[in-house]
Simulated scan of single mutants.
Amino acid sequence: MTADRTTRPTALVTGASAGIGHEFSRQLAARGHDVVLVARDRARLEAVAAELMSRYAVSAEVLTADLSDRSALQLVADRVGDPDRPVDVLVNNAGYGQRRSFLRNDLADEEAAFDVLTRAVLVLSHAAGVSMRGRGRGAIINVSSVAGFIASGSYSAAKAWVTTFTEGLAGELAGSGVTVTALCPGFTNTEFQERAGISKPGPGFMWLDPVKLVSDCLDDVSKGRVVSVPGVQYKAIVGLLRVVPRSVIRRRARLVRR
């Protein structure tokens, strides 16, 4: 589902059918980007594409893919690196919710989550980084999490990897005209928890508005900021976690899991 190609910049967003990914797609379209929408649910993607084309008069391309499948992921990577249809902004947002702790979970689910949360970010960032560096411009946004600063199972570990990987890639691309940013949100009011079967913990003031979250992130990207932490509450938490001994963080994580 596309309109005629123009000279507008193009953004590719994974996990674009709902939540933070949908909001990134909407705000980038509102800022004049054509969009490539990637997710598993074609019907939902087509609904988002129709919405964006109607509201913002941009082109919206639908690319259905399960990023835990290596052949499907490669198709997305090929689209990211296509020299004839350059992608100017890559948003690695696709998520994978886990309801059980690592040892209680099925290993196949853990491997699929690992592929979506880390390997897909690695593969698509490589395709984008090579292509964008060659053109001397572009932006890569990797959606990580405040969970990456604590010690709480494989999801936390995956997000820690995403943040560290992003920082390293930002250093490698410094001076190239390509920016790389890790977005590290906390609890965010989307349907992610409902779809994953996860309850909404914590008091209301800890929950972020996805509209402001994405807007603030895009502002940080324009400033070249490498790590974007939305919300004063989470900025304070991350600042504290950076100085608290890891032994304390591990003890706290054990108490929470009991």
Results as ranks from 00 to 15, higher is better:
A253L: 11
D88V: 01
V221E: 07
G148H: 05
A39W: 08
V162K: 08
L37S: 09
A157G: 08
N189K: 10
R55M: 11
A29C: 12
A253H: 07
Y56M: 03
A94D: 03
A16R: 07
K200R: 15
D84S: 15
H22P: 13
N92G: 07
V89I: 05
R5I: 02
L183D: 00
S222N: 03
W207K: 11
R225P: 02
V91N: 09
M1G: 13
Y96A: 09
P210G: 05
W207F: 12
E191S: 09
G97H: 03
D216V: 04
A139N: 07
D88E: 02
D69V: 13
V121R: 08
V214C: 08
C184S: 13
V221L: 07
G95Y: 09
F187R: 09
S68T: 13
A158N: 12
E51F: 05
A113S: 14
A151T: 06
V116D: 05
W161H: 15
F114L: 15
A127R: 10
S247K: 11
V146C: 05
D220L: 01
P210K: 04
G204K: 14
I237V: 11
S156A: 15
V38I: 02
N189E: 12
I20F: 10
S101L: 09
V123R: 13
A196S: 13
F149E: 08
R40L: 05
L12F: 05
A30I: 07
T64Y: 06
R257F: 10
P83S: 08
V58S: 10
G197Q: 10
S176M: 01
V214I: 11
V38L: 04
R135A: 05
G148I: 03
Q233K: 11
L240N: 06
Y234K: 01
A57P: 07
E61Q: 10
P86N: 02
R225I: 11
T7W: 04
S222M: 00
G81D: 02
I141L: 11
A147T: 10
D82E: 07
A170E: 08
A39T: 05
H22Q: 14
D82Y: 04
D115N: 14
V229H: 04
A174T: 06
V48K: 06
R42W: 05
S54R: 14
E167C: 12
A174Q: 09
G204W: 01
H33R: 01
Y96R: 08
Q193E: 09
L45P: 14
S247Y: 10
A151F: 14
V76K: 10
P201T: 10
R40H: 04
R252A: 14
V221K: 06
I150Q: 13
Y234W: 08
P86E: 02
D69S: 14
